[in-house]
Design a protein around this nucleic acid. Sequence first.
DNA 1: CCGATGTTGCCGGC
DNA 2: GCCGGCAACATCGG
Length: 643
Amino acid sequence: MPPVRVLYWFRTDLRLTDSPAVKAALDLAPSALYPVWCWDPEYVYSHNVGVNRFQFLLDSMNDTSAALTRLNPKSQLFVIRGSPRTLLKDLLLKWEISHLVFEEDKSAYGRVRDASVSATAASAGVKVVTRTGHTLWDTEAIVAKNGGHPTLTSETLMKCVDKLPNLEPPIPAPNSIPPPGPLDLALDRNYHPVSRPVDRNARDRTAEVTVYDTFTGPHADFAVPTLEELGMPPATTPYRGGEAEGLKRLEAFCSNEIAVAKFEKPKTSPAAFLPPQTTLMSPYLKFGCVSVRYFHKRVQDIIAKHKRGSSGLPVNLPGQLYFREMYYAAEFATPCFDRIRGNPICRYINWSLENVYDADGALVVPRPVSDDAEAEMYFERWKEGRTGFPWIDALMRQLKHDGWIHHLGRHSVACFLTRGHCFVSWERGLEVFDQWLIDWDPCSNPGNWMWLSCSAFFHSYFRVYSPIAFGKKWDKHGDLIRQYVPELKNFPAAHIYEPWKCPIADQRKAGCIIGKNYPKPMFDEKARKEHCLERMKAAFALGLKGDDTKVLDGSARRELDEADAATVIKSAATSPVSGAKRKQASVADMFAAKGGGGGSGSSSSSAEKMQKISAAADQAKSRSGGSRALDTKEGGNEALGDM
DNA sequence: CCGATGTTGCCGGC
DNA sequence: GCCGGCAACATCGG
């Protein structure tokens, strides 16, 4: 019998409690255990990862490394800087590994990477052992129970999992682990190029990337990298990663057993970021710091104890975890899940700023600036929290600064960007969430963007979140706005959701002049909503999905664009306002602090509103560098830096 | 074909 | 706090 020497490959499973893959590794009774992390250049250059998620990941890696050292002083998380596709093979050979063990990652990206690494390992005579652990059930098994189809409703998901074996109980963390063997490495840098044609995270860097200068870190100790080595400034998120932190947070949440048993997601406040309104467990699930199965068992036990008056599926806590399973299974069974083009479950809607592809069908990166200046302006102002709608701006600034916002807050801003008001493609919103969220997930995130934009999973496009009413329902005083939009800190509560309606004397008293210290709303909310509803109606009438030939050849786009143009012309023709007058309209006129914008209760018809939109579009298009012109002097978000 | 259902809309009226 | 109107989505079971 050759000696059993295991390389355990950590990825999004940075924990030791309830890790089926770690148990499988230890069950092999290895004489040597190498816990390894490959610091993949894909993640550094090709994915959209902002400084906050990197920080959360580094926290989690450091926590796991310390936990490994506690179990064996010779052990740690051995970080190798380079691509697993090339480096792992070298490590398997040099360290004479017999078994490669890792937790399954069935996302499209993980699947391809893991198949490549597994094939390499097998060809080197190394046995590959994998276990499910990132999800409650094996995603592939769920899809098989659904006839190979994506799971599009929670009911479908439940029907599938009812046919699967019951969940195994969680596995305690190990008490000890074997030491690694010799750590000698003599690798040739030339075999492991890390340069990339595109650096998608360059915008966040303040210095050179040095993390790839060596294989084993600046002190040759396989240390976890630092943000400095990534060329990034310090993170701003208050949330810290790691298994210890995650379990602590879970226990704190579970200490209020009645709240756990009665939890109903739709009745939690989007303005909240503390228990019992939210668990804030999503980033810990994303990096596997907390096992989803352990989380599930913990809340199920509490619910069983407090059966009377407890909430049910799908709004309760287990229900939330089942939605996560649904998105994983949907992603597994759907090609092009994170985009519209080629996506068979995604309704085709002629959004502004949709993805751009080259002649070979490859996504053009970096994304070219669209000639739709109005949409670019809406998008830019949405992203940076300068729409002039305080509720939206507060959430977007919270997202950028903290890396996390409440689920229903995400609904609010996602609906606003897409079908509700801006009519910008969900693909653009997805990219921003990818860059800024600490809990970004390749299944839940595109899934939820399709949900909110009525592209898949959900279809009632006439239910639109109001950027004014929705937040007010939960946060009457506007505390979330005051925290994240400090310009409005002293605004009277009566006007904080619609500050442009505030009398100028009160604006002066609050030390914030709308249009000077904080922007006017970037459009008439009601008019934009009506416009978007018309366009949604047309897209639903056409009834195409992202993989239809008419979408692939561009004719669906032309057809819908023409229908939209006809609607606008028709509205203009029936309007009593003359064309000459229309030309005089401008964005500034529409949103003067007095009168005009945002539901001043005027009797303007839908047709008039349509004209205003059309005029605003003309205005924006004719202005060179339109977004920049509008952005200046309109209350930036510098103040966020020192919160 | 009908009617019930679908995690999380808004508004006005009671 | 709960209802219906708004104008109306998809899916599923019968």
